[in-house]
Design a protein around this nucleic acid. Sequence first.
DNA 1: TAATTAAATTATCGACTGTTAATATAATTA
DNA 2: TAATTATATTAACAGTCGATAATTTAATTA
Lengths: 208, 208
Amino acid sequence: MTDTVKLSKGEKTAQRILDAAEPLFARHGFEGTSLRQITRSAGITEPGLYNHFSSKQELYAAVLERALKPMSTAMDEHLAQTPGLRVYTELPGLMTDILLQHPPIAALFQQALQGERESVGNQLMQQWLDRLVVQGGHSIEAMVGSTIEDRANLAIHVIAMFNLTTGYFLSQNLFAALAEGDILAAENIERQKRFLSKLFRAMLIVYE
Amino acid sequence: MTDTVKLSKGEKTAQRILDAAEPLFARHGFEGTSLRQITRSAGITEPGLYNHFSSKQELYAAVLERALKPMSTAMDEHLAQTPGLRVYTELPGLMTDILLQHPPIAALFQQALQGERESVGNQLMQQWLDRLVVQGGHSIEAMVGSTIEDRANLAIHVIAMFNLTTGYFLSQNLFAALAEGDILAAENIERQKRFLSKLFRAMLIVYE
DNA sequence: TAATTAAATTATCGACTGTTAATATAATTA
DNA sequence: TAATTATATTAACAGTCGATAATTTAATTA
């Protein structure tokens, strides 16, 4: 459909390894996931993995980068095309749509942020969210003056947006218990998007 | 100060084990934390742990229950004393204050929710948050009619509140990178509490 | 103080961890 | 097809995992 590029055998198994590793790292974290689990799920033997990734760390970084890519490009386009404050009111819905296509990566992102400050995961996530702060700072200052007076308040807003959007996908079990439904069902995704939209418009009205 | 109850030697080391285990489970999760790490940090040998907890699972449950207790009692009092919608506008600030006293437990709660649906962690968290849904449902319906029409929408609200409140404490590294400050500093906690208060009032205005 | 119980230790278990070496098989290029 | 490279395998490594048994030391109770 989208990409019918001819893949060599090695590239195909590398993809299979990434596909197998992604949900495992997302659910059990870096330390909680073993190469045995990954290679078993990918249908290869353990040392075979080292033909494609030179260590567990490097595999983890590759998983994370692949997962961040669609978020990153979608956000770039959105930031370039959308004027002013709509960046903030529409971005959560956009992120929700992307996360919906690969629900486990929400957990992957949160796991990545829990490690050491210098860890690969942390750094990748930080440089990604940093653009939101920079761009968002400009937009808001241009629109409503310096109401969001400093970087600290802006960071609090961006962090809240991130946690609200990804946190929804982390609450699958919780939602099933509280509402007896599937959080990924279309109707519930719509509910969440309406909720986010309302919430973020309300959030900005405070600063008008 | 608060409790000068005479503790037996065994009870004291049990406490020390819990104190050592809490931040480790919070940061590395259940599977990512080893009994070796815990006992080393608690200053005892590994088999000595089994004099106080019969397995890793049981220790984990004990850590989680102890961490949930102050949240649970504070929430009970709050629900009993606070009328109507103020339950929702003031609860996040209250939770923030409690989490501030033991910052690692925010991560502990999120980790607990990631496991299997039947896991101890998940069940403990669910029965705790379930009360919010039940009580909150009554309050809101009594105040503003059936505007929050069904359980699904209510669950979305409760989940958002939970993720916003705990997510702040999970974003320590992120905040340091984005705003070059300490997320636990009094001034930033105040910022977050003001933000949460505004946000939740705005959230409810939508339903008036 | 003596008896009893609680709490700690050392030694050890089989299973699992990430990783490497040596080697065989399959795919690609000459 | 032959040569070469890419990709897979089996075997083995030192270190760690959670847990148990047997035993010694310390604390509590009689």
